[in-house]
Simulated scan of single mutants.
Amino acid sequence: MITWNEFEAVEIRVGTIIQVEGFPKARKPAYQLLIDFGPEIGEKRSSAQITALYTKEELVGKQVIAVTNFPPRQIANFFSEVLVTGFADEQGNIVLSQPERIVPNGTRLI
C-alpha cells in the first residue's frame, strides 16, 4: 500500500502526440514520440513500444496519458523524458491509456 502523499507525488498528465518517428536503434520495436503537454510543461519526448497496434500516422493527434516527472531515461541514442502509459493485451501488445474525452493538454490526473 502507498500513502496518498506518495500517489500525489506522481504527475500523471495528458498530452497530444504531435510527431512520430521510427526508432531503429531500439532493441525492441518502438516509436519516438513528441508529445505536447501544454504551456506549463511544453513538448516532451518519449520512446514507446506500441508498433504492433499503432501506425505512425494514426498516432499523430491522439491524446495519451503519461507520467511527466520521472528523470529522463536514455534508450540507445535517445532520451525519453516521459513515460507513456498503457496496458498489455492478451498477446502482450501495449494498448495506450487515453482519456475518454478530449481534455486540455497538461491536465493532471486527480
Rank of each mutant, 00 (worst) to 15 (best):
F79Q: 09
D36I: 00
I65H: 03
V82Q: 13
Q63G: 05
A88V: 06
E58Y: 05
A76D: 12
Q91W: 00
R73Y: 04
E58N: 07
E40Y: 04
I35E: 01
A88D: 14
S47W: 06
G61K: 11
T51L: 03
N77Q: 13
T55M: 00
L33E: 15
L59K: 09
A66M: 00
E43W: 05
R73T: 07
A52Y: 00
Y31E: 10
T55Q: 07
S80Y: 02
A30L: 08
A48Q: 08
F78N: 00
A76L: 07
L83N: 15
F78C: 06
K28M: 06
R73G: 03
P72H: 12
K44F: 04
R45V: 09
F79H: 14
I41M: 15
K28P: 02
G42C: 03
D36C: 02
L33S: 10
G86T: 04
T68V: 12
Q74L: 14
P29M: 02
G92K: 13
A26Y: 01
R45S: 08
E40R: 13
K44R: 14
A66K: 02
G92F: 02
V67H: 08
I35R: 11
T51Y: 01
F70A: 01
N93D: 09
G92M: 04
G42F: 04
V64C: 08
E81Q: 15
F78Q: 11
E57A: 11
R27C: 00
E58G: 03
Q91Y: 00
I35T: 02
I65N: 05
A52Q: 15
I35S: 01
P39D: 13
L59I: 14
A76P: 02
R27P: 00
G38H: 07
L33I: 10
K28L: 07
F70H: 09
I65V: 14
S80W: 07
L53Y: 03
A48K: 01
F70R: 10
V60Y: 03
E81H: 12
D36E: 05
A52I: 02
P72L: 13
L59G: 13
A88Q: 13
D36G: 03
E43Q: 15
V82H: 12
E58S: 13
Q91H: 10
V84H: 03
I75F: 06
S46R: 00
R27I: 02
A66R: 05
I75L: 10
I65Y: 04
P29E: 05
L33C: 09
T85Y: 00
T55A: 11
E40G: 13
